[in-house]
Structure formats: C-alpha cells, structure tokens
Design a protein around this nucleic acid. Structure first.
Lengths: 218, 218
DNA sequence: TCAAAAAGAACTAAAGTAGAACATTTATAG
DNA sequence: CTATAAATGTTCTACTTTAGTTCTTTTTGA
C-alpha cells in the first residue's frame, strides 16, 4: 500500500492536525520524517494525494486534509502475536501429565496418557518429574486446592514431613504428608475434616515427592 | 485454490499492511515466505494478481492492495498452524518479577527490578503480566501461601470476588479479594485472623488480577 | 527425464535525497 | 489599500538507493 516514508508522513500529518488543529508546514514535516529537502516532502505528498490518503485544498498554504489512514490491527492482537513469537523461542520443560490424583489408580497404570504440560525450569531441576491434577480438598491447609497441578518428583523414598504421592494397597494413589512412626506409616491430610491414615509399611509405597504447585485462575 | 506459498504470501502482505500500514518489499516477502530469490516472489504475486486476490498499482513500488482473503486455507497451512498451537502449549513466557507483595510499596515503584521468571504459556494468554512473591498468610484459605509466586494480569478494574493486587492510599500494595459494596470497597483477606478492610473508593486502586500461582517446594 | 519451481544475474524503474531557484500565500507596516 | 517581507509551497535538475522485472540457469520432485 504505502511506502514507509509515505506512511510516516501521513501519520505525522494526521497527528499534528488532531493535536494542534492545523496542518504542519513542510519544514515541520522535514524534521518529522527525517528528510533534508522540501522537494522530498512534496513528492511524498503528491503520492499520498494520488493514492487518495490526503486532499490538498488548492491555492492555500498549510491546507491538507487526511482522508483515510490504513486500518490497524487491534493492539492486543499485535501484542499477542509478539508474545507468541517470544513464547516459541523460550521453551520450557515438558513433563507428562498422568491424570488426576485421589482417584485410586496407581500412577503407573495411567502413565500411558500421552499428555504433557510445560513447567518453568526451576520447578524441575535434577530428577524425573511428572504432573498430577489435584482432586479433592484433603490438602487444603497446605495451600493445595482442588484443580491445582502438582509437580511431582519421582522417588520411592521420602523424609518425614514431605508431601508425597503414596500408593496404598497397590490400588489407591493419594497426596499426603509422609510420616514414619515406629512401625507404622502415617499419611496425614492437611484438612481437619480428614483422618490420619495409619498403615503398615508393606501397604504403602512412595511414588513421588511434591515439588511444586501450579494453579490457573481461568 | 491457492498453493501454500501463495496463501502464505497473501497472508503476510495482508498482515503487514494491517500492522505497519505499508506494503512489504520483495526482500521482506522473501524472508517471510522462505524463498531466496525475488523472481519467485514475482511469480507468486503475478499468480495472486491473476486470481484477483491482490491488485498492483501500476508503475509503483510497494503498492499492493489485498482484495480478498480465501475462505479456506490450504491443507498444509492448517497442519502447520496445529503444530504451532502445540508448540505453544509446550513453551513458556518470560514475565517480570516485581518483588514481594504485602510489603507496602506501590508496584510501579519497584518495576525497575529487572528480574524475570518463566511461566507456562497457558497462564499468560492475552494481556500484560507480572509476577509477585507472596509474603504473609493473609490469603492462606485461598491456597495462597507465604513464598508463592503470584502471576498477575495487569488491570485497573476488577470484578467482585476476584483476587486483586490493590494499592491502598498510594503506598501499600496488597493481595486481597475485591468486593465493591455500595460506596465502599471491601478488601477481604482469606484468613480468619485477618480483618476485612473497608475503604473509600478513592483510597484504593486495582493494579492487577491474580491469574495463577506457582509454588516450589525447594 | 521432463516440467515446474526456485535461484541468480543483469537490467529497468521507482523512491528517496539534496539544493537551488522560483512562485504563491500570508502577515504587517505604512 | 498596497507594498513588501517573511513564510510557505512548487518545480527543476542531478544523483543515490531501493524496489521490481526479465531472463537464464539450476534444482527438484513426480
């Protein structure tokens, strides 16, 4: 449509008229567009007139009228496009999403689901990770809400006090605080309404340790 | 209909005009379509002109006009777009980390900090985002814990019930649930031990809306 | 292996730069 | 109202850079 200089000039004229109410002189345009000679401006204006972007009132000085300016994309779309470009450059770590937890199936059993989620690198340093969607309120006092995405580091051991993915009786996976007491394993929820489960070590297997939480309010 | 290259070129021309207001040159088109010679672009343009998708103003440089956009995309383009969408899910965005909240400084004041954090792309679609480190326990019942990273979408308005970054008396930034009641603004914490603050609208300014939470257990 | 697509070189045309001379409009003093 | 100076706009020439066209050669894919 327009050349860059033509466009720059058109926008300058339009702006100036809108701001000051009167048309800029050639000298002002020279400065604005970055041209050192009036003839250049003249040529640009002739082009703009020919392409019907502006109109000249004949035999008048400082008498230009802007007829149209090229339509723009909405700013937020441009912004989004920029963001997409940027996002495509910085890749982040991919970890598999293994489904929901609290549902009662061993993690391995649902590992075939081929979904992945991207997480910031600082949540997944060193080790093997996977993600689970939280279901239920049993850990609410630890700030873990229904629907949150739990980032889990694969591990088959845990320290007291850590929040772990525990597999009970080889059938039920659950996210709880791990506590070893004498000859029992305590799985402690973080919610007054839930009971501590006291299990024999042979009944419980650690499948991973909670490493991070991602929540989206959408 | 159109070949993938033709379609790609047409879209590029249309986009460029809408974005920048001026027509791209052959050199720019070369880069956009991925052709190394101007003659290739020339051939494509001739095709597009013949099929009346674009018009050339004769004897002018950078003077193309898009007449219409085809309703259907070539199959290859559709597939490519799918790939991009997929890649997007797998990528992350960088957003600035503006420091801690609850500390009592307006967000703007600490905006100079040049740190950024990377967050999954699905937490930061459309809009401008920044991150704040949560300090304190006032939102603990909403699952927002001390030390969490809050992903905030910049906004100066909020709906009732949203969790917002509110600037009180131009000096104190705080994360609370927003509620407009008659002629008062209520800033509600999510913690029984904290009081609701009832303020005059002139005292409070929204600085952003909570969009996500990232927590790391390290 | 043949035709279509692409690359490249050589060329033509348009856009932009610069300065000067000239023409017109506008403001101002007499 | 008119003369005139100052400001503004137009035209011309000469030149540089950027853009577009045409042709030949090379590559590539059915």
């Amino acid at each position: 449509m327009l050349t860059p200089k033509q466009y720059k000039l058109l926008m300058f004229i339009d702006n100036t008229i809108k701001e000051t109410g009167c048309c800029p002189s050639f000298e002002e345009m020279k400065a604005a567009v970055g041209i050192k000679s009036k003839s250049g401006i003249h040529a640009l204006i002739e082009e703009l007139v020919e392409r019907e972007f502006i109109r000249k009132l004949p035999h008048k000085a400082r008498a230009l009228e802007v007829l149209k300016i090229p339509r723009f994309k909405p700013r937020d779309i441009i912004e989004e496009e920029k963001k997409i470009k940027l996002a495509l450059q910085n890749s982040s770590a991919q970890i598999p999403l293994y489904g929901k937890i609290a549902a009662g199936t061993p993690i391995e059993a649902i590992a075939y689901e081929n979904e992945t989620v991207s997480v910031p690198y600082d949540l997944v340093t060193r080790g093997e990770f996977y993600a689970l969607r939280i279901e239920g309120e049993s850990m609410i006092e630890a700030g873990i809400m229904d629907g949150d995405l739990a980032i889990i580091k694969r591990s088959d051991t845990a320290e007291n006090g850590q929040i772990v993915v525990a597999l009970v009786d080889n059938s039920e996976a659950t996210l709880k605080v791990w506590q070893k007491k004498d000859n029992e394993i305590w799985l402690k929820p973080c919610n007054k309404d839930y009971q501590i489960r006291k299990l024999h070590p042979s009944q419980v297997k650690v499948q991973g340790i909670l490493n991070g939480i991602i929540r989206s309010y959408n």
